[in-house]
Simulated scan of single mutants.
Amino acid sequence: MRIFVTGGAGFIGSNFVHHLLNKHTSDEIIVFDTLTYAGNLANLPSLSTTARLSFIQGDICDERSVLQALAGCDAIVHFAAETHVDRSLVETQNFIATNVQGTYVLLEAARKRHLQRFLYISTDEVYGNACSPAGVSRPSLESDSLRPLSPYAASKAGADTLAFSYWASYELPVTITRCSNNYGPYQYPEKQIPLFILNALEDRPLPIYGDGQHSRDWIHVYDHCAALDLLLHHTEGQPIAGEIFNIGAHQERSTLENATTILKVLEKPGEQISFVKDRLGHVRRHAVDTEKIYQQLGWQTQIPFDEGIKQTIDWYRNNTAWLADLKQKNNEFLQKALNLGL
């Protein structure tokens, strides 16, 4: 299979590329990435050693470039997106352009190229607070209404429903996934877990929004990639085109719990925790019901949080050159995030 991976130099995308290279020795992979602040070729060390992996620097909003790059491909796995809720509150236009317009361009190109599979990577953020139609808190189902609470979530919800419409209107073989919060290697350190790890290592405060009780389901990126692999290479059983699958780990934890765990593993004092003003539109609980993907594909997670967080802490502790390169770029938003608790 020849696979076109958008955003493949980012966090989840690069981990997925590593997964495919290791597991599917006949697959060819084209990474298409514009290399914004979160895209990093250092996330793809195999580029220089693996003939099956190639890279094209390009913008998913550029119709001509996308159509040309897709020549000969069998499938798209679409990760490319602006993803940080905090950034979406101050840079909303970028989120609409990349997440909605960019997805439209890819869908059109996939339709023209008659691709066999289009895997759209959405997010559990599209559900808003996890609850039943009656307002009772419970994990979100694929059939639940979308109630995004941030510009980021709204842009993903728009692209999510646009992708489904291409299945309904044109029978483009689209499959949509909505995953819970990821953690693991290569994650840009403005996000919660790597930010906490980096601040703990460097003896800075760990900023906790509001009361710290906002809850998320946390899945190791390796488990997420395994689920996506099953969907991408699915050939038997129930059809997956036109279907939506939740992906999660049933490991819900509060922001405060994560901060406390990281400080404990690193043997740092609890006094590094710093409560700060809550952010706008902050979802109280994200969690997804994963019964559908388990029943249809037999997928379930393999990495418990206690094990995964120690592996992740070790990765950041052992990859100082990778971190130093990011910090050298002196990204203003990242610097503000790292120093939020001061």
Rank of each mutant, 00 (worst) to 15 (best):
S145M: 04
V276C: 09
T123Y: 02
V66L: 09
V77G: 06
A259I: 02
I313M: 03
I96F: 13
E243W: 03
V136R: 14
I56T: 13
L342K: 10
T123D: 07
T123E: 04
I262F: 02
I30P: 00
L232T: 00
E307S: 07
Q101K: 07
E82M: 11
V31L: 09
N258D: 04
I273T: 05
S165F: 02
H224L: 15
K112D: 13
G10R: 05
I309F: 02
F245Y: 15
A153P: 11
L266F: 06
K112G: 11
R111Y: 11
K23W: 03
I240K: 01
N182H: 07
E91Y: 10
Y316W: 08
A159V: 06
P205S: 12
T261Y: 02
A337T: 10
W167Y: 15
Y183Q: 07
Y152H: 10
H19G: 02
W315H: 04
E82K: 06
Q295A: 15
E202Y: 13
F4T: 02
N22Y: 06
L256T: 10
K310L: 09
L70P: 10
P207D: 08
N40G: 09
G210R: 02
V221T: 11
M1F: 09
I244M: 10
K264A: 15
G184I: 00
L231T: 01
P269Q: 08
L266S: 00
K277L: 12
E291K: 12
E125W: 01
E125F: 05
T123S: 15
A97G: 01
L323K: 00
G341W: 00
E108M: 13
Q116R: 15
W322V: 07
T255G: 06
I197M: 01
Q68V: 14
A75T: 11
S143C: 08
V77P: 07
Y127I: 05
G237C: 04
Y37I: 14
E236M: 05
A159P: 09
L334T: 02
V105K: 04
P185T: 04
R178H: 03
H114W: 03
F333R: 12
A154K: 04
Q311T: 07
L232M: 05
G298E: 12
S65P: 08
L280A: 15
A241Y: 01
